[in-house]
């Protein structure tokens, strides 16, 4: 690999990992969502660098929309949307820190110690058309299954989220009678 490519790779990885870390350190949910998008943009950059140009760009395309929707949800649900106060809402902090570090060390050890098969790098010019032929050729069943899964997801999430169901208001039917909300328990 040539020098500029390496530099771009380290830049993208730094962006990806740094933004990923900032996601859980941001004061506002909107910032957290866009830090997460930054992490995806970093990964998309690496994908483009290794020759999967189409996948990288599609990742950015998807994430821009998804993270914006996420930001709107955050502003809707969170008590501190503007990020004016420090926000730290964690539980079992030490355990999860340990779990995170352990999974990083474990996966990193595999990455560094295991020996993987080596193959010549793919031809970037052919990567996209290869993917297209694969999508509508050998892996057509997988592709179509993904499409059906997405369709059922749409139907399912509309059914879950709709205010007005077939049998009246969604809240009426699903709330258990006499189930008070335990506020001080939180």
């Amino acid at each position: 690999m040539t020098e500029p490519l390496d530099a771009l790779f380290w830049l993208s990885s730094t962006v990806a990992v740094f933004s990923a870390w900032r996601v859980f350190r941001a004061d506002s949910m909107v910032r957290a969502a866009y830090w997460l998008m930054g992490s995806f943009v970093g990964v998309a950059g690496i994908l483009v660098l290794v020759g999967a140009e189409f996948l990288g760009l599609v990742l950015i395309l998807m994430m821009a929309g998804e993270m914006t929707i996420m930001a709107v949800f955050m502003v809707m649900f969170m008590m501190n949307p503007a990020g004016l106060n420090p926000m730290n809402m964690v539980h079992q902090h030490r355990t999860s820190l340990l779990a995170g570090v352990l999974s990083f060390v474990g996966l990193g050890a595999i990455a560094l110690l295991a020996s993987f098969p080596q193959a010549p790098p793919p031809d970037p010019a052919a990567a996209t058309s290869d993917l297209g032929h694969e999508l509508l050729g050998g892996s057509m069943l997988v592709f179509q299954t993904a499409g059906v899964a997405l369709l059922s997801t749409m139907i399912g999430s509309i059914a879950l989220a709709a205010q007005r169901g077939r049998y009246g208001s969604a809240a009426e039917g699903s709330e258990e009678p006499g189930a008070p909300i335990d506020e001080e328990d939180a």
Partner: peptide, 15 residues
């Protein structure tokens, strides 16, 4: 790099 992203994700999802 991918392990680092995964580890941060594990930490976030649990904490």
């Amino acid at each position: 790099v991918s392990a680092a992203l995964f580890g941060i994700g594990v930490y976030g999802a649990l904490s």
